[in-house]
């Protein structure tokens, strides 16, 4: 066990955990931020996507010990009142079915648009291909992303 002070959603938080613990479980079970979802544990589904200094990272493969001073953002911290333009676009397009994968989808989409504000069809397909949705809401996810893009 070791103590880590992490910058999560703009706040410093200290946890005392096994250094190998993936951030996914640190967030979900030690910091009461269960919006980040467990889907596969092998970085193959994207449900656990968070931001590390604004970049999309699969938190199930990110040991807490590897996080230093980087800023971690989770779905809970994406915006103070849940009205980030991407979150609004998700509501406008009524994207969700079961909803389980959507936090990860949104975190991926936000990271995509941050670095590439006007992504092409191929850019979107490529960047979002790491996020699985068994309900098949991809059409709306893509439409929501396009609606936030800035040509």
């Amino acid at each position: 066990m070791a103590k880590y002070t992490l910058k999560i959603n703009g706040k410093n938080q200290t946890v005392d955990v096994d250094p190998a613990t993936p951030m996914l479980w640190v967030l979900r079970e030690h910091l009461n931020l269960p919006g980040t979802k467990y889907g596969c544990g092998v970085a193959a589904c994207g449900a656990c996507t968070i931001h590390v200094d604004g970049n999309a990272v699969r938190s199930c493969q990110l040991p807490v010990s590897s996080v230093k001073k980087q800023a971690i953002t989770t779905i809970e911290g994406l915006s103070p009142t849940g009205d980030h333009p991407v979150q609004r676009a998700w509501l406008e397009h009524d994207v969700a079915q079961c909803g389980y994968c959507q936090a990860g989808q949104i975190m991926s989409a936000v990271a995509l648009l941050k670095n590439n504000p006007n992504p092409s069809e191929e850019d979107i397909n490529g960047f979002m291909s790491g996020n699985i949705c068994r309900c098949g809401t991809y059409t709306r996810i893509k439409a929501a992303i396009k609606s936030v893009a800035k040509p």
Binding site: L33, T36, Y38, W90, Y100, A103
Partner: peptide, 23 residues
């Protein structure tokens, strides 16, 4: 008439609602 998912906001803000989130 089309009405939005009543849980839409909870879903996009990551509110705990699934069995996996139960504490």
């Amino acid at each position: 008439t089309s009405r939005k998912n009543v849980d839409g906001k909870s879903i996009v803000t990551g509110k705990p609602m699934f069995g996996m989130d139960y504490q």
